[in-house]
C-alpha cells in the first residue's frame, strides 16, 4: 500500500492513451462525428472535465506548454486544479498566455486571440449530443446522425423564433461541421461559434461521463444553424471592457454593490491583461501603481 501512488506520465497508462489517440484520430477523420471511447475513471469528478483531461493526457508530451481556462479565465478554481494536476503528474510547462501554449484545455470559452497552426484546443464537454434534448434515446440519435435527419434541430429553432421573434439559443449553439454532422460546440457562448470556423488550430472535444470524443480538424467549415431570413447572430455588448477598453470581446458582468452598480470586463483574462500591458485602458482601470500596492 506504500508504493500505491506511482503513476505514469500524465496519469493514464500508455495502453489507455493509445486507445484514446485512436479515438481522436477517428474523430479527426470524420469531423463532427462522436466517437465512442472507453472513458476511464479519473481522479476528478465526472462533469468537471474528465473528458478534456483524458484527451489532454493522451496528447500531452514533455515538451508541450499547457494552458487551462475555465469561463475564459486561467485563475478560476477548476482551471487551477486541472493545471496543477498536469504539473503534478506530467511536470509539464504551463502558461497563461494563449500564444505561448501548444495545448489549451478549456471549459465554456474559446480564447479571444486567434489560434494558430500547431495549437490544439481541447474542450470539456458535458453533453456531446446536440439532439439529446429533442430525443433522449442514444439508439435513436445515432440513427438520426447516420441518416443525416436533422429536421428536428430546425424545429427547435423554428419554435424559438415563433415564440420569441428570434433564435433564443445563447450557448451550446448547434453547428454543422464540414457540411455533414451536426455538432454541439460544448456550452461556449454562441459569440465564440465563428472562431471555430476554418480555425488554424486543431479542436478536440472530450466528454468523459458520456464517453465520446469528437473533433474539428484545422481549416474545416463550421456553420451555425439558422434560417435564411433569420441568420445566425452573435451577442453584442453595448460597452467595451471596463478594464482594457476592448470592443468585440465577450464580457463578464461583475456586480459591484447592492444598488445595481455593475461593470463589464473581459471574460478572457489573459487577453485583457495583455491589452493592459500594451497600454490599453478601460473606464474603470485602476492606475498601475495603485493596483500594485
Amino acid at each position: 500500500m506504500t508504493d500505491l501512488a506511482t503513476y505514469n506520465f500524465a496519469y493514464l497508462d500508455e495502453q489507455t492513451k493509445r486507445m484514446i489517440r485512436r479515438a481522436i484520430l477517428k474523430a479527426i477523420a470524420i469531423p463532427g462525428y462522436q466517437v465512442p471511447f472507453a472513458s476511464r475513471e479519473m481522479p476528478m469528478p465526472y462533469g468537471w472535465g474528465t473528458g478534456g483531461v483524458q484527451v489532454t493526457a493522451a496528447i500531452l508530451g514533455p515538451d508541450d506548454v499547457l494552458k487551462v481556462i475555465d469561463q475564459g479565465a486561467d485563475d478560476t478554481t477548476n482551471a487551477v486544479s486541472i493545471r496543477a494536476f498536469f504539473q503534478k503528474v506530467a511536470n509539464v510547462a504551463v502558461t497563461t498566455h494563449t500564444r505561448d501554449a501548444t495545448i489549451i484545455q478549456t471549459r465554456h470559452r474559446i480564447p479571444e486571440e486567434k489560434l494558430t497552426e500547431g495549437q490544439v484546443l481541447v474542450y470539456q464537454v458535458p453533453i456531446p449530443e446536440p439532439l439529446r434534448f429533442l430525443e433522449p434515446r442514444e439508439t435513436e440519435t445515432r440513427k438520426m446522425h447516420a441518416l443525416e435527419e436533422y429536421g428536428l434541430m430546425h424545429v427547435k429553432l423554428y419554435e424559438d423564433i415563433a415564440r420569441n421573434g428570434h433564435i433564443a439559443t445563447t450557448y451550446a449553439y448547434p453547428v454543422k461541421v464540414a457540411g455533414r454532422y451536426v455538432m454541439d460546440p460544448s456550452p461556449t457562448p454562441k459569440f465564440d461559434n465563428p472562431k471555430m470556423h476554418m480555425s488554424e488550430a486543431l479542436q478536440l472535444f472530450g466528454a468523459g461521463r458520456e464517453k465520446r470524443i469528437y473533433a474539428v480538424p484545422p481549416h474545416t467549415e463550421v456553420v451555425s444553424l439558422d434560417f435564411e431570413d433569420y441568420p445566425f447572430e452573435i451577442q453584442k455588448f453595448e460597452q467595451p471592457c471596463a478594464l482594457c477598453g476592448a470592443h468585440d470581446v465577450y464580457l463578464d458582468e461583475v456586480v459591484l454593490d447592492d444598488k445595481g452598480g455593475r461593470m463589464f470586463v473581459c471574460s478572457d483574462t489573459d487577453h485583457c491583461e495583455d491589452r493592459r500591458d500594451h497600454g490599453h485602458a478601460g473606464a474603470m482601470l485602476a492606475p498601475k501603481k495603485e493596483a500594485a500596492e
Binding site: 435527419e149 436533422y150 429536421g151 428536428l152 430546425h154 424545429v155 423554428y158 419554435e159 423564433i161 415563433a162 415564440r163 439558422d226 434560417f227 435564411e228 431570413d229 433569420y230
Partner: peptide, 26 residues
C-alpha cells in the same frame, strides 16, 4: 409532436427536406 406548436408540426417535414426559410415555412 404534442409539445411543439402546430406551425412547427406542419413545418417539420419541410425542414427535414432542407427548407431553410422561416417565412416561407410559416
Amino acid at each position: 409532436r404534442m409539445t411543439v406548436s402546430a406551425g412547427a408540426n406542419v413545418g417539420e417535414r419541410l425542414m427535414a427536406v432542407g427548407d431553410r426559410h422561416y417565412g416561407n415555412i410559416r
